[in-house]
Nucleic acid binder design. Structure first.
Lengths: 231, 231
DNA sequence: ACATTGGGTCAACCCTGTTGACGTAAGGCG
DNA sequence: CGCCTTACGTCAACAGGGTTGACCCAATGT
């Protein structure tokens, strides 16, 4: 069963339960499964059951589990970037890309948590990379810098978004306990042992909030400064 | 076989092969297993084989796989931060903190990938937060800024390190395939559809490299600029 | 020396991904 | 229109995973 997976299939045939399979339908069903029952609910067997087909039918569409995960990741990217067009302001455009990716991840936290760290090699990802590098080229960076800086930018965005998604994907008690720990544990510390924490004590509850935008803004500041310096 | 795992065990009994089990020995063997035979070598059965005991003997020491992973993560954190002391240069010190965290994660990628997004508010972590915020306070930031900026910094470091660890923790063919994809897939693209990728084509192989230091340096640049601006 | 019980072992269960063989029906082509 | 090829859904099987309950021996406190 090491076969290739064709791009367009022509002899579509209903399954035993009457469903017409397709790559899109499989990915959508996988996303629904993960969203409803958690990442560990995604297995070939369960997915087959949810689709109303034999589990091994999926191997006609994906080489294996990993291939399916990549398709899911690319779908999330595609949904997030749908309708995005870069504007004149390259900083603002990169910022919007970041916020879109984050929103896409948070729309499917559990799926994003499992697929976030992969390079999908698929259409939506490639298009996004092209757009992002294009923005840095219009900013005046030479190609070598544009590629490397885009990588640092998108890796920061993706890993931040993945961390946020993973946090949201935890069982509901856990984020709440985590939030409390910033209030309770850190507030009762010995001032002599932890002087700096004591100095910023009133600010600690705010540390349960997301740092996504702060980090992105810092990064864009640095990029803008470097672009200015090269004029 | 229910639940309780005693902290001190007194009736230690040699296994069939003569080994005396202990929580420490199990954790060390698990880390060695991962280091020698790759991340996928960590399974209850293989760990039992490596220890020379029945796999299910481990359930006398840990409630399950998850419990074992947390014990491993605990050790990684301790090892990474051992012996760190902040110096006079706050930027350099934050940089060293970042590199230490990254090194600790990459030393045990799979365990780090599994536990990276779970927050253990333990002593080592609290001390690290105190140190980091202290560095930003000496940089001249007011408490509110120091706390928020430190959060953005450490979240970037942690999520980047987690992403790198997750990448390394994948089965050995996958990172290699991901790496190749930057060379192969992206190199043969249509110039009209992907003009920016075409423009930076010679740089694409470098995009398989890590962006960790680049991202950290950009972030530290932005922080230094803000510190300068407030004088 | 005895009773207690911690803990190592074994067998078993159900899960997982993946494969090769099989047959049926869909579509191209005469 | 009907044959022929073959795409693709199905089935059975395998190896490996985590986890459990029963078993029973020996290390320990008395």
């Amino acid at each position: 069963m090491s076969t290739r997976v064709p791009q367009e299939r022509r002899r579509r045939r209903p399954t035993r339960s009457g469903v017409l399979l397709s790559e899109d339908l499989i990915v959508e069903t996988a996303l629904r499964l993960i969203g409803e029952h958690g990442p560990e609910a995604l297995s070939v067997r369960r997915l087959g059951a949810a689709l109303g087909c034999d589990p091994t039918a999926l191997y006609r569409y994906f080489h294996g589990t990993d291939d399916l995960v990549l398709a899911i990741a690319d779908r999330i990217i595609g949904d997030a970037m749908a309708g995005f067009a870069p504007g004149d302001d390259w900083v603002a455009s990169l910022r919007e890309m970041a916020l879109r990716v984050r929103a896409g991840y948070l729309a499917h936290p559990r799926a994003a948590a499992m697929a976030a760290h992969r390079v999908t090699r698929r259409r939506n990802e490639i298009r996004a990379v092209d757009t992002g590098i294009g923005l840095l080229l219009t900013a005046g960076f030479p190609p070598a810098d544009a590629a490397r800086l885009y990588l640092a930018f998108i890796d920061t965005v993706l890993s931040h978004a993945a961390a946020e998604a993973a946090f949201q994907a935890l069982p509901p008690q856990q984020p709440e306990a985590d939030r409390r720990s910033w209030r309770d544990v850190y507030q009762g510390l010995d001032p002599a042992t932890y002087p700096s924490l004591t100095a910023v004590r009133p600010e600690l509850p705010a540390m349960a909030d997301s740092s996504f935008e702060q980090a992105v803004d810092l990064l864009l500041e640095a990029l803008a400064a470097r672009a200015r310096a090269r004029r």
